[in-house]
Design a binder for these strands. Sequence first.
DNA 1: TTTACCGTTTACGTCCACGTCAACTATTTT
DNA 2: AAAATAGTTGACGTGGACGTAAACGGTAAA
Lengths: 165, 165
Amino acid sequence: MSDPLPTIREHDLNGTTYTIGELAKEFDITTRAIRFYEDEGLISPVRIGSKRLYRRRDRARLKLILRGKRLGFTLAEIRETFNLYDEAHGEAHQLRYYLSVLEEKRQHLIRQREDLEETLRELDHSYAHCEQLLAQQEQHKVKDHGTAAASRQARPSPAATRMED
Amino acid sequence: MSDPLPTIREHDLNGTTYTIGELAKEFDITTRAIRFYEDEGLISPVRIGSKRLYRRRDRARLKLILRGKRLGFTLAEIRETFNLYDEAHGEAHQLRYYLSVLEEKRQHLIRQREDLEETLRELDHSYAHCEQLLAQQEQHKVKDHGTAAASRQARPSPAATRMED
DNA sequence: TTTACCGTTTACGTCCACGTCAACTATTTT
DNA sequence: AAAATAGTTGACGTGGACGTAAACGGTAAA
């Protein structure tokens, strides 16, 4: 008689491990998504019987996948990054190629950062302008103390044309 | 007899104008994309006969659309932003709502900026580590002066496990 | 033992952001 | 007049990233 199959929890594989459900909960994604990433070659969990068991490395990659997605990278791009990383520990010309890819990626990210800063600046302007409008309306309310209808049809403010630049 | 229809270029509408092709070239997108943005309610060019004529405002919006896309926003989100902006110049409660949406957006962008900075940091580390590996290989080449085969099978470097965290 | 949960695979559906014809018109150039 | 160029409206196709449903297996608690 063979030993009974150990449950997934009794496996340790010297290190922390996770079930698919745990990871799904932790990162607030569906198990379907996690399996999909595996189909796309982005993660390779160990199998215990038919079940997937995720190790620290898998969790780290999942994190990178999600961050990459938030930055707008496609799964294919993320996979490429992983593959490159995995293969770049050998020959010099591989390392050089890896360097060039990193440089490209940096350009992309820096462009994106500029877009982001610019958007944040404009957002701040809108925010300030909006608060100013509100403050003016308060002023009028105080002056008119009650006849608020006067300020309903607000004149177009100078800053209202900002989007036309 | 009626005057002949003025050509699209003779129209000025007091201000700079653009044809669809000009904008497509300037922003390096297809005319199909521009028309699609119109179908989705993001731009509203003037019509001269059957042709579209784009004004400064349209061009500005196109710019915003593309920047939004680079930051990963969907067209629906961008449209919402535009609509909100257009309608936020009236009542106080609209202004307040607009403020809350802006605040949300700011949160999103700041989170994204953190992702971005973190990615840039890791990228810099990879870059540095990569250069260091290359430098080591150069060292060996000098020592062995010629018998480069010795360093082909590089031992796994300590930093090679970084992705496992 | 039955019920309740994970977990698995396979297959098809969906939404988004366009690309790709096709068939046509209007203007400009040769 | 003919050809090239730029524009127009449909309609259908596509690739990416999953969602959803079906049908099933294993383990854990009641």
